[in-house]
């Protein structure tokens, strides 16, 4: 494989005295969709927050596009081309849908790409017609699914090379989860954004991913192509029993 776009090497992250990540390594190649599956509290969100610069690792490093991300503050990581859709969506509830999109394009607007951003916003509205209808509404008044779409559109407006999707299915009804995963599939098919997806719904994630890692209690337990992991008996037993019923 060519030089990966993102590589994580022996990453250790502590919350006070609790070790959340115990030295994990993984890589994501250009244009790939890689999923990280695992149960609640396994360290998935910690990993995402460390990549995006919200958390500082105790040791180990994160390399992106040939440059180290470790120690780079979150607002600079975005500039390098990494966007995160945070767990729980975290839309700016008290601002309008349109303002949320403006904030997603904050750096581009500050560097004078007004026209390009307007075009991209128009494209987002054609992908998500509901957002166009509700552009003047406060984001906090949207349904959970609409908020998730807004959070994804907002992240895409920074034109990231790498999009981090943290638990996009959280708290959503199964029908809406279908929509979210259809969108992820569409992003994957376009192949101009590399995707790192963290999910508790292992079956859903393995269905769309190229490759996947299984994370348990802060360590990577298994890695392989999504197909291999879907067929792996221990994965089936631990993660797919409940998830497959969705």
């Amino acid at each position: 494989m060519a030089e990966p776009l993102l590589s994580i090497e022996e990453l250790v992250v502590d919350y006070g005295r609790i070790r959340a990540l115990k030295g994990i390594s993984l890589s994501v190649g250009q244009g790939e969709l890689v999923a990280v599956i695992g149960s609640n509290g396994a360290g998935k969100t910690t990993m995402m927050k460390t990549i995006s610069g919200l958390l500082k690792p105790t040791s180990g490093r994160v390399m992106f596009d040939g440059k180290p991300l470790t120690g780079v503050p979150a607002h600079r990581v975005v500039k390098l081309g990494v966007a995160q859709v945070p767990e729980g969506r975290r839309v700016f509830a008290q601002q309008t849908v349109r303002d949320n999109l403006v904030l997603g394009a904050f750096l581009r607007l500050r560097s004078g790409q007004k026209r390009e951003v307007a075009e991209d916003t128009e494209r987002m509205f054609s992908i998500f017609p509901r957002l166009r209808e509700r552009q003047d509404q406060l984001a906090g008044t949207l349904s959970g699914g609409e908020q998730q779409m807004l959070a994804i559109a907002r992240a895409l407006l920074s034109r990231p090379k790498l999009l981090l999707l943290d638990e996009p299915s959280m708290g959503l009804a199964p029908v809406i989860i279908d929509e979210v995963f259809a969108l992820i599939e569409r992003l994957k098919a376009a192949r101009d954004t590399t995707l790192l997806l963290v999910e508790q719904l292992a079956f859903r994630a393995l269905e769309v991913a190229d490759r996947a890692y299984v994370i348990e209690q802060g360590s990577i337990k298994l890695a392989g192509s999504a197909k291999e992991l879907l067929a792996n008996p221990s994965v089936q037993q631990a993660y797919l029993g409940a998830a497959a019923t969705h």
Partner: peptide, 24 residues
């Protein structure tokens, strides 16, 4: 203004604001 909206965003959620590239 874009920067004004960024100020409001920091008021509402600092971490998410920095994920937008805003220097809190």
């Amino acid at each position: 203004t874009v920067f004004g909206k960024a100020v409001v965003a920091v008021s509402e959620d600092k971490d998410t604001a920095s994920l937008m590239g805003i220097d809190q």
